[in-house]
Amino acid sequence: MSPGHMLYRGREGMWMWVVHRVTGVAIFFFLLIHVLDTSLVRVSPEAYNEIIASYKTPLYGLIEAGLVAAISLHAFNGLRIIAVDRSAWALRHQRMLVWIVWGIFALLMAGFLPRHLMHVFGGA
């Protein structure tokens, strides 16, 4: 983008496209790391244990929460995109569907986050 370039004032659809991109790339990098750490067990079981132990630190606990957030957003927005491509009704109500995606996301996170954070920080 050129200097002084103003953002385009898109609506829900454009921002969900951004969310889908960002979460997609984040999930890709997670999978990359995940394949690498899992394959480490073939190389050195000790190193594997060490890496897995580091995942139990609070920092990784927070990253884990981010991962769950990214996957649930990506999954439900993915369903929205499929719906939009398949049904004229969904296409015409895509903005409402965006808010339904965020609603389901908020519901899932409300159920998951307290328990997860208790586990990460409280050792429960």
């Binding site: 385009y8 898109g10 609506r11 829900e12 659809g13 454009m14 969900m16 496209w17 995109i81 939009v84 491509d85 004229a88 296409l91 015409r92 895509q94 903005r95």
Partner: peptide, 20 residues
């Protein structure tokens, strides 16, 4: 399906619908 086209069209064409 970012829908920017549909919202920008000064003729009110449902552009994303046409693409779909």
């Amino acid at each position: 399906t970012a829908f920017n086209c549909t919202e920008a069209c000064p003729r009110g064409i449902e552009v994303t619908k046409a693409i779909s």
